[in-house]
Amino acid sequence: MRWFEIALVVLTLFTGLVWLLDKLVLAKRRAAADGLLANQAEPVVVDYSKSFFPVLAIVLILRSFVAEPFRIPSNSMMPTLLTGDFILVNKFAYGLRLPISNAKFVDLGEPARGDVVVFKPPHHPEQDWIKRVVGLPGDTIAYRDNQVILNGEPLAYEELGAYEGVGNGAEMTGAEERREALPGRPHRILERTQDYLRDPGEGEWVVPEGHYFVMGDNRDNSEDSRYWGLLPEANLRGKAFLVWLNCEGWFCQGAFDTSRIGNAIE
């Protein structure tokens, strides 16, 4: 969606400058020429700019500093988020950032443990990804035998039974669903109990200042900090807080799930 953000900024600036130029210069010239040219019409580009600039400016402000919609493209956050979920992301939870550059200019807070965050991964800065914050600055995080160890203390897990997926998530049917007791934010995760050939990403990491350790809730189907490292604070985009629609195909294709509408992201 980076192309949309760039296009929105460019169009807003262009229409705003045309409107301002007309107000300060062009309109006065037309008024002065009224005695020479009867019924002098307002240029089309000025007319369109004056009409579209307020709308574009409002959309840009809301999308950049209030809330931005995103679509979940994969199963990496199952069972919390499903492929096809359309979510809203709080853009001011961690500070106000400029569009396109993502540079923070007002500091309003930092992620809490367990927050589901949207960010630009260091190795794919042109993309937006979503994961859960597991490790905060100063933490030591280990992952062994399908278990998170936080500052030397293994997290507790509650067995919830076999998971039954639907739609694109059917590939995870039969996986073990568990509740992970992450301090401050218990949440559900998925893990495969059968033999699985993927590298589980075991290891131990110390989280430095200005970085976070993030993981997907679908532990065997998530490319996260276990594989590519720690997330810099500067790459954060916002905090995911609401599912407002679910539609797996771009034209729904019979996969519209009304039960997902209005679900808070835990």
Rank of each mutant, 00 (worst) to 15 (best):
A142G: 10
R178V: 13
G109K: 13
R63Q: 05
V148P: 02
V116K: 08
L81A: 04
C247N: 07
L197Y: 05
W250K: 12
S222G: 00
W129E: 00
I72Q: 07
D128A: 14
D47P: 00
P122G: 12
F92D: 03
F86E: 05
G201V: 09
N146I: 00
F65A: 07
V206H: 09
T80W: 11
K104G: 07
T140W: 01
R219H: 06
I130D: 00
G16I: 11
E202W: 04
D217S: 11
F251M: 10
V116D: 04
L62K: 08
L62T: 15
N90G: 07
Q40T: 12
R192I: 09
P122W: 06
I72F: 07
G262V: 05
L20H: 09
D217Y: 10
T15V: 06
A67S: 11
P208W: 13
D217E: 14
T12W: 04
Y157K: 06
S225W: 02
R192K: 13
S225K: 02
V89L: 04
E176M: 06
D257M: 03
I189N: 07
C247W: 04
A255H: 11
G229R: 03
K239F: 01
G84V: 10
E177S: 08
E153L: 06
D217W: 08
F119L: 09
L8W: 01
G35R: 12
P208E: 12
E164F: 10
W244Q: 07
W129T: 00
D195C: 03
T173C: 07
R192C: 04
R63F: 15
F86T: 04
V10Y: 02
P79F: 10
A181D: 15
G169V: 06
V166K: 15
E153M: 10
L8D: 05
A156W: 00
L155N: 08
G95D: 12
L190N: 07
F65I: 11
T83V: 10
M78P: 00
G201M: 05
I149F: 01
A31W: 02
C247M: 11
L26V: 13
V243H: 09
W129R: 03
C252D: 14
D47M: 11
R2H: 10
V45K: 01
Q194V: 04
V106Q: 06
K131C: 02
Y163R: 01
I6R: 12
A255R: 14
L231K: 02
R30M: 14
Q194I: 00
P154G: 09
V134Q: 05
G174D: 05
H211V: 00
G184R: 11
R144V: 12
E180L: 15
V214H: 01
S222L: 00
E177P: 00
L36Y: 11
V133R: 02
Q127R: 15
L150P: 08
G135S: 06
G135P: 02
H123R: 13
